[in-house]
Design a protein around this nucleic acid. Structure first.
Length: 574
RNA sequence: CGGGGCGUGGCUCAGUUUGGUAGAGCACUGCGUUCGGGACGCAGGGGUCGGAGGUUCGAAUCCUCUCGCCCCGACCA
């Protein structure tokens, strides 16, 4: 491709709304442009990268035995009503009406459609298992789209769905997909970890997320320093006995203390000259299971996902001011477990607190010397808190948890029969019994994977593409196109490299060298070849790898060979 | 959904407090010089100041409404 002919508008400045590095660089490198909040145009250079990711995904999925299909983006509401998700999916689901006032939605995911597709055709266990996937544009009406392709509303996703006759077989495919995902992200040259994850509104029993490690990631993951345990903090557990020994302190009588205006753990512990570990936080929640109170030690945070699971609740929200007043007879900030009319769910951590401080359920007052069982009754103890760095690993003997940031690029779920039962998708087994299909579901964010690669591979000048995702492999720069010898040599090399099967971008623009070099740095093509009359006199050209500082000189006759060697080495190291 | 902010040429922004008929840098066009790390000179083109309504002799500037975008928060007791 010739730069002069390519629609490749690079920018000196990034638009002021671009915050994270991948977003800024994608815009500056002329890869994407915003059309509306969370909705983007892919320009030629951006699309090339997207296609690279897609093709890696496609090759590996095919290799793993999956088959590509394509489903509609506009989905009739009946299918979503059948699965029950029309009412529970929330505002992320963009609902639209056609001219006949029939309900549709823009597909944020395709369990319903695929289940419908498969139930119409699959009759027998002999036709199983089957794994179908598509690479397609999805739409989720995110509350707050941001970070460019990282959290868009419209985005390209690979989603695969597998159908099985037995649990065993479904688990085998889950492992197959897990391994396939590892291969995919390795080929993309990403540093990633597979972590145990929550299942969210997609449903299902357990799952793994594939996280690209990057400081700008929106997720936190906990990872063991010793063994391979890793989990999204939404789900991460710790050893219960890791909480430390219960104090030997003698239990003292309950006492009420005036604490005017002291609401937060910080304020209260400072005011009472104690430490957060001596406090018990009481949080009032509203849920479909009613209003409940959740207790956790003052220095920890409640993990709402865990609480939700404990309650077996469909939804859960921190109670509003009005509810808090009704339940506690006090403004928020002074809730405590003593005398609360609601059910009380407590994190194990409060078992370590003796003579605790809690809210008094009265404005501007706290209780001290509160002791569970003595002063209040806990309905149930459980693991309800967020893990913190340094917590003991739940799986091995002496590992400690570390917390990292990650970008979720892939997710594998075991769905079970949630959709097949709701939508009556069944088959006949060997015994002639009708059984619901057992399903699995496997997603990869294509655009997000490209963005994650930039988050991981860039410097102060621009992108550093790994060879596998690079829009071109070679960036050819004739320094001065008005110099005939330079241009002739460049054209020659260009043709040779193309014939050698390489993707080459030749910057044949009549621009100053500085502009070309700077654009080359922003775009980030791995191999840069510079042709100028200085080195041409010695029949040499300059070869520089984008991810290395030093350049080297290569004889004209050896260029194609050297480039191929460099490209291959690059594969091996990245 | 709550709080805050911003919409002025393709991009980054000034001008708004104190109304007076629209600017800078970059980008773009032409000519000349320059030419291996974002050159310089000269001459140009391009803006319904997000939109609608109002106040006024006069509105980018003041008022009302509206649309769009961005940031923070929505795990706080």
């Amino acid at each position: 491709m010739r730069f002069s002919k390519m629609f490749l508008p690079t920018l000196k400045d990034a638009p002021s709304d671009a915050e994270v590095i991948s977003h800024r660089l994608m815009v500056r490198a002329g890869m994407i442009r915003k059309v509306a909040s969370g909705i983007y145009n892919y320009l030629p250079l951006g699309l090339r990268v997207i296609r690279k990711v897609e093709n890696i995904v496609r090759e590996e999925m095919n290799r793993a035995g999956a088959q590509e299909v394509s489903m509609p983006m506009v989905i009739p509401s009946e299918l979503w009503q059948e699965s029950g998700r029309w009412d529970v999916y929330g505002k992320e689901l963009l609902r639209i009406k056609d001219r006949h006032q029939r309900g549709f939605c823009l597909g944020p995911t395709h369990e319903e459609v695929i289940t419908d597709m498969v139930r119409r055709e699959i009759r027998s266990y002999r036709e199983l298992p089957i794994n179908l996937y598509q690479i397609q544009t999805k739409f989720r009406d995110e509350i707050r789209p941001r970070f460019g392709l990282m959290r868009g509303r419209e985005f390209i996703m690979k989603d695969a769905y597998s159908f099985h006759a037995t649990e065993e077989d479904a688990e085998k495919e889950y492992q197959n997909m897990y391994d396939t995902y590892c291969r995919i992200f390795e080929r993309c040259g990403l540093k990633f970890r597979a972590v145990e994850a929550e299942t969210g509104p997609i449903g299902g029993r357990f799952s793994h997320e594939f996280m690209v490690l990057a400081a700008t990631g929106e997720d936190s993951i906990a990872s063991c320093s010793k063994c391979n345990y890793a989990a999204n903090v939404e789900r991460a557990e710790t050893k219960i006995e890791g909480l430390g020994v219960k104090g030997q302190e003698e239990k003292r009588p309950l006492e009420k203390i005036s604490t005017p205006g002291m609401k937060t753990v910080d304020e209260v512990s400072k005011f009472l000259k104690t430490i957060p570990q001596k406090l018990i936080k009481t949080l009032i929640y509203n849920s479909d299971k009613g209003v409940v109170a959740a207790l956790v030690r003052g220095d920890y945070e409640i993990n709402e996902t865990k609480l939700k699971r404990t309650l077996d609740a469909e939804w859960l929200n921190l109670a509003d001011e009005e509810t808090v007043r009704k339940i506690t007879n006090a403004p928020s900030g002074f809730a405590g477990p003593v005398g609360l009319p609601t059910k009380i769910f407590a994190d194990y951590s409060i078992q370590t607190v003796v003579n605790a401080v809690t809210g008094a359920n009265e404005a501007d007052a706290h209780l001290v010397n509160v002791n569970p069982d003595l002063n209040f009754t806990v309905s149930s103890f459980g693991d309800l808190r967020m893990v913190v760095a340094g917590d003991l690993c739940p799986r091995c003997t002496d590992g400690k948890l570390e917390i990292f940031r990650g970008i979720e690029v892939g997710h594998v779920f075991k769905l079970g029969t949630k959709y097949s039962e709701a939508m009556n998708a069944s088959f006949l087994n060997e015994k002639g019994e009708e059984k619901p299909l057992i399903m699995g579901c496997y997603g990869i964010g294509i655009g997000r994977t490209a963005a994650a690669s930039i988050e991981q591979n860039h410097d102060e000048h621009g992108i550093l593409w790994p060879m596998a995702l690079a829009p071109f492999q070679v960036h050819l720069i004739p320094v001065n196109v008005k110099d005939k010898a330079t241009l002739d040599a460049a054209e020659n090399i260009y043709t040779n490299l193309l014939n050698a099967g390489l993707d080459v971008l030749m910057d044949d623009r009549d621009e100053r060298a500085g502009i070309k070099f700077n654009d080359a740095d922003i775009i980030g093509i791995p191999i840069r070849l510079t042709i100028g009359n200085k080195t041409l006199k010695e029949n040499r050209v300059e070869l520089k790898m984008r991810n290395r500082q030093e350049a080297s000189l290569v004889k004209l006759d050896d260029v194609a060979k050297r480039v191929r060697i460099e490209a291959r080495q690059f594969w091996n190291i990245s």
